[in-house]
Amino acid sequence: MPRLTDANVTIAKEIIGRYPRPKSALIPILHLAQEQDGYVSEDAMRHIAELLGITPAEVYGTATFYEMFKFEPVGRYCINVCTNISCQLLGAWELLEHAEHHLGIKAGSTTDDGMFTIEDVECIAACTEAPALQVNYRYRYRVTHAEFDLLIADLRAGGLADEIPPHGTLARVRQRTPQNWADTGRTAQAEVDAR
């Protein structure tokens, strides 16, 4: 199982530098690990613990609290169907049932070819556009069953590769630490912590 690549260690260190205390960078770096491998591996968690000066158990404790982190490989495309109240009222369960039928898997599992994972998720903040779903956290609104089938076909055909990166990649634009980074928070907090 992989540790973080050198390039990602560089990014991780830059992220750490943007917080007054290193552990604050934990969740963003877990995302980085997930971006690298599609899931968060044990070796990556050990590596992150080293980078942050904490124990792997602490990394694990935080990581497992949050639903987005996967600890074993999932599909290239994670299809999260919202079934919360607004979506339920407008046919989310029927959409989910259709999705399961169409892909031949139950919610919470992955197709044999490793392409798709379906999940039954909580509100994704698209309530007025129900029923809504996300593919790797990219929205699809007011999804009809036919549109769902089309979506799957497009994803299989690679037609949406530009818009939807593989699972794990969240924002494709990163905040940078520019020349005029003031660093006032870290300096001030370090003073307090030293006391």
Binding site: A57, G61, T64
Partner: peptide, 17 residues
Amino acid sequence: KLIHFISRGNDTQVMTF
């Protein structure tokens, strides 16, 4: 810090890495 709470809510459990 070798034992920690993991998971969440009703699944919260004490565990090691």
